[in-house]
Simulated scan of single mutants.
Amino acid sequence: MRRPARGAGAALTRLTVTVAAGDAEVAAAEASALLGCGFREGTGPAGAAVLDFWVPPPAADPARLRAALAAIGVAAEVTAADEDPAWMDAMLRFHRPVEIAGRLRIRPPWEPPVAGLHDVVIDPGMAFGTAQHATTRGCLELLCALPPGGPLLDAGCGSGILAIAARRLGFDPVTALDHDPLSVRATIDNARVNGVALTVARRTIGVDRLPDAPLVMANLTGTVLRMLAAALAGGPAPTRLIASGMRPDEVPSVAAAMAPLGLAESRRIQAEGWATVLLERG
């Protein structure tokens, strides 16, 4: 096994963010954007979400991160601790290759490819998605079940994992959009590493016009998915839409928002308390 380029022994500080479970997703997104790195999620006392970020010591400012989260309405406990070199071993254990539907293999750069599977390489230090989360796996599983070919829009691309996987599966052209400049940068970099061509741009759902595509993928939140439905109403409706980032009890409201587009739920995957749905035109 080849270790990451950062190497064991790198001087890092672990920032630990503890928030209510319901605030975990928005806290993770805000902290990742501020710190420019990915994270490890665990569960603390009384079901609280515990998010660990490994950052260079100059970036380890608990007060700044706590204030940034408070500004978006998230109450958080933030602590900093010097990390010993074992942090890399922990990351190596957590970020394992993920195989999807016998077709895709999502792996960190220190793991080798496997013959016969479409290879997607994602650096977990870059931010926002390495297929460890159930919502990402659900999107990829539903994508693998669709006939390949034709344009695809990844709305809220994060690390670009869904867009890159779509290109590997034969969808073309693929457009990847995100409001966060760090996500746009990570997607461009990951596309380059994987040798795939994507159109990547910074766009905000609900503000900017989105490009038309017969297939849309969106791993967001229930609130943003409902905003996406309104945004898509301004142009030709997609034929299919894969939506994730929802809790199961949010699916009905998202499906209702998509109904005016002629889209209705045709398949659902539920795992680890999350729901991913395929909506199709009748």
Score class of each variant (00 low, 15 high):
Gly149Phe: 08
Ala80Phe: 00
Arg3Phe: 05
Gly234Asp: 15
Ala165Asp: 08
Ala67Thr: 06
Leu228Phe: 08
Arg3Ile: 04
Ala28Phe: 02
Leu146Glu: 15
Ala275Gln: 13
Arg267His: 14
Gly129Arg: 03
Ala81Thr: 13
Ala115Trp: 09
Glu250Leu: 04
Leu177Arg: 02
Leu220Met: 11
Glu280Asn: 11
Leu15His: 00
Pro113Phe: 06
Ile164Met: 04
Asp212Cys: 13
Val254Tyr: 05
Gly44Leu: 11
Ile100Leu: 07
Asp89His: 04
Ala21Cys: 06
Ala127Gly: 06
Gly36Val: 00
Ala101Met: 05
Trp54Phe: 13
Glu30Met: 11
Ala231Asp: 14
Thr13Ser: 09
Val114Cys: 10
Leu261Lys: 03
Leu220Val: 04
Val251Cys: 10
Ile188Tyr: 06
Cys157Pro: 01
Ala11Ser: 10
Pro85Phe: 05
Thr18His: 03
Ser159Ala: 01
Val121Ala: 04
Pro97Ala: 00
Val55Ala: 00
Thr135Val: 06
Ala271Phe: 05
Val26Asp: 03
Leu162Arg: 01
Leu117His: 14
Asp119Phe: 09
Leu65Val: 01
Phe53Leu: 00
Leu232Gly: 08
Ile161Trp: 03
Asp178Trp: 10
Leu220Glu: 02
Gly170Ile: 13
Thr223Ser: 11
Leu241Cys: 12
Arg247Tyr: 10
Glu111Leu: 14
Thr239Leu: 10
Ile72Asn: 02
Pro112Lys: 12
His133Gly: 01
Glu141Ala: 15
Glu99Thr: 15
Phe39Pro: 01
Leu152Glu: 04
Val120Gln: 10
Thr199Ser: 15
Gly73Thr: 06
Phe171Tyr: 15
Pro148Tyr: 12
Ala237Tyr: 10
Gly245Ser: 02
Leu92Phe: 03
Leu140Tyr: 07
Glu272Ser: 12
Cys157His: 03
Gly160Phe: 02
Pro248Asp: 01
Ala68Phe: 01
Ala155Cys: 14
Thr135Lys: 09
Cys37Gly: 05
Trp274Glu: 08
Gly149Trp: 12
Glu25Cys: 02
Gly116Arg: 03
Cys157Arg: 07
Thr204Trp: 11
Leu278Gln: 12
Leu153Gln: 02
Leu210Ala: 09
Pro248Lys: 01
Gly282Ile: 11
Val26Gln: 09
Ala76Trp: 04
Glu77Gly: 09
Asp208Cys: 07
Asp123Phe: 03
Ala127Asp: 00
